[in-house]
């Protein structure tokens, strides 16, 4: 199957290796991956701020970029939700709404695509023995209803997904919310971090959530390691193959980079 990757702003700039891992994973599963170069921002920042005219402009652009793609995959539940759920809502003209609905049907978050479209549940044994906590982005959980998919894939690759009291609670990112209501936003992150069980990694399919939790965790000196779901799933296939991920990801500049490092905390 031909799959267009919609990398998303945050993954392009902060989780580039995770996005590359998504490409590796999709190729491994038999997909031909393309990257339409004219893609930009899905428009969610404007949509969430109540600036729907601006959001529509960005939606129009994105719909044009991905118009002829057989399937569109995003390494982000939040941006996938923007395309799948909010584009059809934003389009006022009937024919545009129909086009948005058609794109919505062909658009998937990564884990959603693997399980619901490809029907794959077992990736490999690469995560055997690894204890992870899963932070589900709110859009992935409550809009896309990916209530089981990421955990099934992680467990299918041998990971132990450890119960976490606040697993389904919001991390407090919420885009604009994190800068407009910064104290409350940080308090939400604290609630997540305070209730976190002992794990090797915290895995999330949304870069925004990782920026928030990792940023707060580093400010507190927590030493928690965050891994993007795309990287975790690719490791599920591939294991480590003798590769030092931390070096690969950070270019040797940081001990750990934003949520991309795979070094075990032991």
């Amino acid at each position: 199957m031909k799959v267009a990757l919609f990398v998303t702003c945050l993954a392009d700039h902060y989780f580039a290796e995770a996005a590359a891992d998504a490409v590796r994973l999709l190729r491994h599963l038999g997909c031909e991956v393309t990257f339409p170069d004219a893609q930009t921002c899905c428009g969610q920042p404007a949509y969430n701020a109540g600036m729907s005219r601006e959001a529509v402009r960005m939606a129009d652009h994105t719909m044009e970029v991905f118009a002829d793609c057989e399937a569109v995959v995003l390494p982000s539940g939040s941006c996938a939700t923007m395309v799948k759920k909010f584009y059809p809502r934003l389009m006022e003209e009937a024919d545009r709404a129909v086009q948005a609905a058609a794109l919505a049907d062909r658009t998937f978050e990564l884990a959603e695509f693997i399980m619901r479209r490809l029907g794959v549940t077992r990736l490999g044994d690469g995560l055997a023995g690894r204890r992870v906590a899963l932070h589900q982005g709110c859009h992935a959980l409550r809009e896309l209803r990916l209530e089981t998919e990421p955990a099934v894939l992680l467990e299918g690759a041998g990971a132990e997904v450890v119960p976490w009291e606040a697993a389904e609670e919001c991390c407090g990112f919420g885009g604009l919310f994190s800068v407009k209501m910064t104290d409350v936003s940080a308090a939400l992150a604290d609630r997540k971090l305070d209730s976190l069980p002992r794990v090797d990694w915290v895995v999330s399919g949304d870069g925004g959530c990782i920026l928030q939790l990792d940023g707060r965790g580093r400010a507190r000196g927590d030493g928690v390691e965050f891994v993007h779901l795309a990287t975790a799933l690719w490791r599920g296939v591939d294991g480590w193959a003798g590769e030092a991920m931390a070096e690969r990801d950070s270019g040797g500049r940081h001990g750990r980079s934003n949520g991309q490092a795979g070094r075990r905390l032991e």
Binding site: V7, A11, D12, H13, Y14, F15, A16, E17, A19, A20, V23, F35, D37, T182, D183, S185, A186, A189, L211, Q212, D214, G215, R216, R218, A219, D249, S250, G251, R253, H254, S257, N258, Q260
Partner: peptide, 17 residues
């Protein structure tokens, strides 16, 4: 104020691609 600043990837995905 409440968080460390995000660290960009050494190369963007576009560069890797």
């Amino acid at each position: 104020n409440d968080r460390d600043l995000p660290r960009p990837s050494p190369h963007t995905f576009r560069q890797l691609w």
